Amino acid sequence: MTHRPDPIRAHPGRRSRSDRARQVADVLRQQIAQGAVAAKLPAEAVLQREFSVSRNSIREALEILRREGLVDRLPGVGTVVRRPKLEHTIAATRGLAASLRGHGTVVNEVRTAGQVRPPTAVAAALGLEPGAHVCYIERLRRVDGEPISLDLTYLPLDIGTALLQADLETEDLFALIERAADDRLTTVSINLDAVNADEHCAALLGVTPGSALLVLQRATRLSDGAPACLEFVRMRGDRITLRMSAPAT
């Protein structure tokens, strides 16, 4: 029998300052997102004792959060929370607008809405034959006037036609779908990617080109399994954090 040596593991004490700073930043970022940190972070000395790392590691961690736009470092004041991210809980029957309403006034700017002939892949995702028309809705979502996401939504005609006459600026899209279909949304398939904002999208969302965006692709179905909509939602990575819970399998 061939002897396999035990894997080599780095000793915890030999880890770099940047490794430790990253660990600290991850915990602080979560605390800020959950509202556990109010207006101001504890002093560097307090954080140093809490995380058992050097003062330089703490300062590097705080600089990471500053570059992410989560905190400001103010001389004579300390590290203050700039603005916590807006939390979106991913669920089959909960759209982004529903998650954001508790954070301010949500308005959807409808950039276009009508019937289109979609790409073959979109038609297939909606259970349609190639060449079939669908309803297409594109909205720029704002919270208290600040652009947060760009939503591209495809719907079968039997559902989408009714939505074209609805109040797409203020009403939740999922609620409108359930009303039009007279059925419940029950299942969802989600893909999530991180991309860099192109110049056009960056201008719409009020960020610099190359900024981090989260792209949520979500296919939602009704209780009988029929496809209800296919969404591509571009969200600002500096303003939105995603949350999801699922039972253990």
Rank of each mutant, 00 (worst) to 15 (best):
S99L: 02
K85G: 04
A97S: 15
V46F: 06
L86A: 07
R239L: 11
A212N: 07
T153M: 09
A175V: 13
G104N: 03
R22S: 10
V80F: 05
T241F: 05
E231W: 12
L96R: 05
I177Q: 04
V77H: 05
P209F: 01
R4L: 13
R117F: 01
N108K: 12
G104Y: 01
V24A: 00
A97M: 12
R243S: 13
T89L: 12
E199P: 02
T241Y: 06
R49A: 12
N196W: 13
L47V: 01
A25S: 09
T112G: 10
Q34M: 11
L28G: 03
D193A: 14
T93N: 15
G160R: 03
Y136N: 04
A36P: 00
L242D: 13
G145R: 08
V195C: 05
S189D: 12
R236H: 04
A180W: 02
N196E: 15
A38R: 13
I58V: 09
I8L: 14
R20D: 00
Q217S: 13
V188K: 11
P119I: 07
M244S: 14
A212Y: 09
A39C: 10
E63Q: 10
F51T: 00
R83V: 03
R111P: 03
R66D: 04
H88L: 10
Q30E: 12
F174Y: 15
D6F: 12
R139E: 05
I58N: 00
G78C: 05
S18G: 12
T187A: 14
E199S: 09
E87Y: 01
V24Y: 04
A91T: 10
R239K: 11
S57I: 00
L230T: 04
S57R: 01
S211R: 06
A91L: 13
L168R: 02
P12Y: 06
R234D: 14
I240Y: 08
S149V: 06
P12R: 09
H133N: 15
E138A: 14
R4F: 10
H133C: 13
S16D: 04
Q34F: 07
L128I: 07
R94Q: 12
S54P: 04
V107C: 00
V80L: 05
V46W: 04
E138C: 12
D193Y: 14
V27K: 07
S18M: 14
P7I: 08
Q23G: 11
V106G: 05
D182A: 14
V80I: 10
A61N: 00
I240L: 13
D19C: 10
E109M: 07
D167A: 03
R49M: 07
